[in-house]
């Protein structure tokens, strides 16, 4: 559904943020986009939405070129930016003005989501807190019934109960026709929600694999002593949290933080395992 081929992108011509990046996203998945600060997570998301233009390469989103900014595609994308600025109108006038652009807009669903998020419908958008604005934008975006949902750090600014509500809402938002991609630093917030992990590093895709694929090939374990099979480890209270090749077909629980650190520090060791 989303196909990126040999994408070259940089804010300055001589300094590329993505170098020949390729990627394919299929419907029915929640992708977790990870990367260090400045690795280009937001830029990749903006490229997919046509908000920035790549130097070269091809991008196809549901058969459209996002850079053309055609209404047919825009109506199918829900983009939740990290920073928000909303006009100073009331919720219902915002909805009245914007919802008609989406032909499948679900008003009842919007009301349900707003109720779940505890947002009174006659609030003025500017007077709401950052977290409330974010929740409103998420609720509105999901109610548009867009097929491609892009979220840049959606849990930033959400309080603890809202994070749980967010996870519930996202779990119900995933349908077979939808692609959801979420960039985040707060992996713990989204741990069990993501089913495929994409890690950006060094202007490339350092890892792109489903959680099943990862836990099929790797084993996340707490061990007492390090040995040569350990790919990556971090000291813990009772020894080491370690990443090992999955020799014994163990079904371990993916530790995203550990995996991320392993990929960032030791890409070369992991490459042969996934290829």
């Amino acid at each position: 559904m989303i196909q990126i081929d040999n994408l070259n992108f940089g804010y300055k011509k001589d300094k590329l943020l993505f170098n020949n990046m390729s990627m394919k996203l299929s419907p029915g998945h929640i992708y977790g986009l990870l990367g260090k600060n400045g690795a280009g997570k937001s830029s990749l998301l903006k490229n997919m939405a046509g908000l920035v233009y790549a130097q070269s390469g091809s991008l196809s989103v549901m058969g459209f070129d996002p850079a053309k900014r055609q209404p047919g595609l825009l109506a199918q994308i829900c983009f939740i930016p990290e920073e928000l600025y909303l006009p100073s109108v009331k919720i219902d006038s915002y909805v009245k003005a914007n919802a008609p652009f989406y032909k499948d807009f679900d008003h009842a669903y919007l009301s349900t989501l707003l109720a779940e998020f505890d947002i009174p419908a006659n609030n003025k958008l500017v007077n709401m807190s950052y977290g409330q604005k974010k929740k409103f934008v998420i609720a509105f975006g999901l109610a548009t019934q867009a097929k491609f949902i892009i979220m840049d750090e959606p849990t930033n600014g959400l309080d603890i109960p809202s994070k749980a509500q967010f996870r519930k809402i996202m779990a119900s938002a995933l349908t077979e026709e939808r692609v959801i991609i979420i960039s985040t630093h707060q992996v713990r917030d989204l741990d069990n929600l993501i089913d495929t992990i994409i890690i950006l590093d060094d202007s490339k895709v350092a890892l792109h694999a489903s959680i099943d694929q990862i836990t099929d090939k790797l084993c996340f374990k707490n061990i007492r002593n390090l040995d040569e099979t350990v790919i990556y480890s971090e000291p813990s209270l009772s020894g080491y949290n370690a990443l090992l090749p999955n020799y014994h077909q163990e079904d371990s629980r993916l530790d995203i933080e550990l995996l991320f650190n392993a990929v960032i520090t030791d890409k070369e060791k992991l490459k042969p395992i996934f290829n």
């Binding site: 900014r69 109506a75 983009f79 930016p81 600025y85």
Partner: peptide, 18 residues
């Protein structure tokens, strides 16, 4: 001119010409 705000404007499903 404000990035945060321009996203919502640019993502509004109408054509550039409109």
């Amino acid at each position: 001119g404000q990035k945060a705000r321009s996203i919502i404007e640019l993502m509004t499903p109408a054509s550039t010409f409109e």
